[in-house]
Lab assay of single mutants.
Amino acid sequence: KKVTINGVEIKFNNPEEAVKFALELAKRLNLRIEFHGDQIKIE
């Protein structure tokens, strides 16, 4: 399963991993996060 985070394609074994990764990243950098299907936007 491929997920695009800020235009960067990252391959994950499952979608939950991708979501956890994105949330952790957003929390660490104190950023806002948006989900659009397989696209995750962090700003």
Rank of each mutant, 00 (worst) to 15 (best):
R28C: 15
E17A: 11
F12P: 00
T4Q: 05
K11A: 11
L25G: 00
R32N: 07
N14Q: 04
L25T: 01
H36T: 11
L29Q: 02
K1E: 05
N14Y: 10
V19H: 06
A18E: 03
F12G: 01
E24N: 05
N30F: 10
G7T: 06
L25V: 06
I40W: 02
R28H: 09
E34P: 01
F12Y: 03
L31S: 02
E34Q: 08
E16T: 08
Q39W: 14
I10F: 11
N14A: 07
N6D: 06
K27C: 14
N6I: 12
E34L: 07
L29N: 03
N14E: 01
V3P: 05
E16K: 07
K27E: 09
N14T: 14
I33H: 00
T4N: 07
N13A: 13
T4V: 14
K20N: 06
F35W: 12
T4R: 05
N14D: 10
G37K: 07
I40E: 01
N6T: 06
L25M: 07
F35A: 02
I10S: 02
R32C: 15
K1S: 12
E24W: 13
I42W: 00
L31Q: 00
E34N: 06
N13T: 11
K20A: 10
P15H: 13
F12H: 01
K27A: 12
N6F: 15
K1N: 10
G7N: 05
E17I: 09
K2L: 13
I33R: 00
A18N: 03
K11R: 13
A26K: 01
G37Y: 08
I10D: 01
E9M: 11
N14V: 09
F12V: 04
N13M: 12
R28L: 11
K27Q: 08
G7E: 02
V8I: 13
A18V: 12
L29H: 09
K1I: 15
I33F: 03
E16W: 14
N30H: 10
P15K: 09
E34F: 11
E24S: 05
K27T: 07
A22V: 13
K2W: 12
N14M: 11
I40V: 06
V8S: 03
T4Y: 13
L31H: 01
E43H: 12
E34W: 06
A22W: 14
K11F: 15
E43K: 11
E24H: 03
L31G: 08
L25S: 00
A18R: 02
A26V: 09
N6Q: 08
A18I: 12
N13C: 14
E17T: 05
G37D: 08
I40A: 01
A22H: 01
L29T: 03
L31K: 00
E24Y: 08
I42K: 00
G7R: 04
A22T: 04
R32M: 08
K11Q: 11
V8D: 01
I42M: 05
A22G: 02
Q39F: 14
E17D: 12
E16F: 11
N30S: 05
N6G: 10
V8P: 02
I5R: 03
E16S: 11
L29F: 10
K1F: 15
A26F: 10
K11W: 15
K1H: 14
D38H: 05
E43M: 14
I10N: 02
D38T: 07
K11T: 12
E43I: 15
G7S: 03
F12A: 01
H36M: 13
Q39A: 10
N6M: 12
N13I: 11
I40L: 06
L31W: 05
L29Y: 09
F21I: 12
T4G: 02
I5Q: 02
E17S: 07
L23V: 08
V8W: 13
